[in-house]
Design a protein around this nucleic acid. Sequence first.
DNA 1: ATTACTATATTCCGAGTAG
DNA 2: TCTACTCGGAATATAGTAA
Lengths: 208, 208
Amino acid sequence: MFKLLNSDKLVTQTEISKESGLSQQTVSRKLKELEEEGIIQRIIIKDGEYIKLTDKGEEELKRCIEDILQLIMRTKILHIKGKVTAGLGEGRIFLSIPYYIESFKKYLGFEPYAGTLNIVIYDRISLENRLILDLAKGIIIPEHKEPNRVLGSVKAFPSSINSISPAAIVIPARTTHPKSVVEIISPYYLREKLSLKDGDEVEIEVYL
Amino acid sequence: MFKLLNSDKLVTQTEISKESGLSQQTVSRKLKELEEEGIIQRIIIKDGEYIKLTDKGEEELKRCIEDILQLIMRTKILHIKGKVTAGLGEGRIFLSIPYYIESFKKYLGFEPYAGTLNIVIYDRISLENRLILDLAKGIIIPEHKEPNRVLGSVKAFPSSINSISPAAIVIPARTTHPKSVVEIISPYYLREKLSLKDGDEVEIEVYL
DNA sequence: ATTACTATATTCCGAGTAG
DNA sequence: TCTACTCGGAATATAGTAA
């Protein structure tokens, strides 16, 4: 049932019924209820219907994931692997702003080196774990208003990279990054400390 | 209900009942069912019970998270299958131009092998997914002007091919390709690495 | 084909209560 | 106190159809 729910494709209740093991009638009723609750939006035409999650629906599902995470994250460690890449860095801008440097020191306990290490993710598991970071709590460095600009909030996750710590994945609240890139800060110049060059694979352990 | 489920603390069904809004009787029955299904493990004593998720339970919950992620992911995974074909490659031209090689390294995190793998799509679903790529953001390798020529921008999507990654689908901004062909780059010589010959079917996972 | 209504069948919940 | 049973009523699912 779920898999077909956020499709931009035309689906029929019979298809959903087969996939979910429920009857077509139950699917009909459930979809109607979900629509009435504002979880999904439907366009019904002669040959079937188009179904889309609403923002509210997305929020609810994110809450579900958070609840589940609370449960299974006794292990509290996620693994993300990827390859070192240049550029793409919004993070290095943060590292030139005293407010963020002070905040990292205060919230993470270390003074960050003046640049970030950018990692491109290319496998499904790591990508999923990266998406979980969007939903997980993390350490929030709060928004900071200055006379002529607003410094947006940043979420950070204490991590180790190739077994070196401390380090942290930082995710700006407003990012233009694709979800397949993460930025690491650390007190060390990691490229040197780990002898990394573009394309080298690294393994990140993220502590939730 | 959930929050108390993985506790190493002693909990009573009345507590869970209050937290979940269900009756103590229902909690009793549900816990019994979960235990019989092997999702949780319980130690019941006079003052309450200790409840722990089993490995199976944890797996099931992880599957739930994956399902939900599939639904809400802006970063979606698309599947495209097709058959290996020779020629048609505009891509191999890119791979002889240093600017593109450097850019692929920078934006994708790997140094591409000097040739592309061309895939012909022949089924409706894959074709639809291919068309979605035209609309999706992807990773843009920007246009580059040189004294005597302009190197057009290229859109890339991190992918895996027959579970081998890293790899990327590359789509030139100005292409003469039909929409039913995609070009893959990778650090590997994929034909050899995957023992492919013309006409072999491959499955591509694309990360949006 | 579709989606969805109505009436019947099944499942589920919780009050009372036992152990 | 605990957990867990029985059982009647409520909620939910399906079969048969309508539109």
